[in-house]
Design a protein around this nucleic acid. Structure first.
Lengths: 233, 233
DNA sequence: TACATTAATATGTAGCTACATAATAATGTC
DNA sequence: GACATTATTATGTAGCTACATATTAATGTA
């Protein structure tokens, strides 16, 4: 009576995770080889491998060639942030999206922007300051720098009608993205643009993207007071 | 002179991504079937599949059975947050870690905590307030609630010596984690604990974890002024 | 003993086949 | 024409083999 049922890699993964959770294998312990698990579960090594890859990605185990698989001694909390186009984020909340170009000018990159891109010298960039609105109320203010060498077409885009955020995301996928999140107190100019009170704490998301080695854009997005960023999944 | 070089799934992925980036396939376009790509590249379908899975996970394309693969019309910026044990975070910066238990008591879960867990009724919990220090200066203050039904052993842990953060992460891996990030102005009690000035903007990370359906812990971690959260990779 | 070389080993990847699954398209029936 | 049924199709998964790669362990040599 051979048990010929097929085991999905998801069920294998869950079984292995369960064993780690219930301390069959504790932090720092070495897990059996993939082959052994395969024999134990009655499945192929590739199925165990698939399961293990998932566990490794989620940060629960660590794999090293020849070294085998070990339960991470210092597990990390790994969460995926989903940052959509701002217009869609607003619309998904059931609000009406609005957009307003505030300023736009060609400038050499500032020292801060050069640092974000790790550039040794200044480059010509288009600086765009714009406000995203939800139900006619300030939602996110973005101060964006776009590298003109990498994205020359941006000069022919009418940024009074279409946000640079949307145009770039739709036309210039990136290959690398750095993210920095922090809080800062609202200044007087923030108060004006975001209708915040001077004492308010503002949530800032700084985002810098490249395509290959070429810088695309670096921006600081300041959200209205009360904004929250959630993980999905 | 058959070209028998093996193609890695990474190179295939990069080739396909390149085609999307240079507008061979634009947003909303349907990509060729895996088999076609395989023939085109001279590799196996499984290799294309592997590449496609990666592109789908990074949010660049969308795959649906029978529907095929399409370039996402509204690409999302997807970033992975790595949140280590606070002690390790401090030590990795080259600072000396310190820890201080402030208060600890058994309480029924507050309405806010019940909401975080989506619990219909209150449960007995251990509430732990503690301060993490870097070089003897306040780093992160955490107000944590631990479900006593799910984690009864926590009562026998000496939380004056070991942080609940560390104990839980090492002993109670979770299966689900919700994250909420926002900014809030520092209050008077914050000033006392975090040595912040009353006007300071504070970065808050709320984290709620479950194992299966059972609640483990829900906490609000308030960082010292100037704290920044970065993505890695 | 110190150090370079070689073997052993566990994971990683590529290729193949076969079948599962979900979603759509085509078809038949009333 | 409306609706249920049945193909068709592209992706998803499981299993297998073979080989690549990184790393550690064993071995040989000065």
């Amino acid at each position: 009576m051979t048990d010929k049922q097929r085991h999905s890699w998801v069920s294998i993964r869950d079984s292995i995770r369960e064993m780690i959770l219930n301390s069959t294998y504790g932090p720092g312990d070495k897990l059996p080889r993939d082959e052994e698990f395969a024999a134990q579960f009655g499945c192929a090594r590739s199925t165990v491998h698939r399961a293990m890859r998932d566990l490794a990605q989620s940060g629960l185990v660590e794999r090293r060639r020849k070294g085998g698989t070990t339960v991470r001694r210092d597990p990390v909390t790994r969460a995926t942030l989903n940052i959509p186009i701002t217009r869609l984020e607003v619309e998904q909340k059931g609000s009406t999206y609005g957009y307003q170009l505030i300023r736009q000018s060609v400038q050499p990159s500032s020292p801060a922007i050069m640092a974000n891109f790790a550039l040794p010298e200044a480059r010509p960039m288009l600086r765009v300051e714009a406000l995203h609105l939800a139900d006619s109320r300030p939602y996110i203010f973005e101060d964006r720098w776009i590298c003109l060498e990498t994205v020359p077409e941006i000069t022919s885009v009418d940024l009074t009608r279409e946000s640079a955020n949307e145009w770039l995301v739709r036309n210039r996928p990136y290959s690398r993205c750095d993210l920095r999140l922090y809080a800062r107190p609202g200044s007087a100019s923030d108060s004006e643009i975001l209708q915040s009170k001077p004492g308010d704490a503002l949530f800032v998301m700084e985002r810098t993207t490249w395509i290959g080695e070429a810088p695309i854009t670096s921006l600081s997005a300041v959200a209205h007071p009360g904004y929250q960023l959630l993980t999905q999944g």
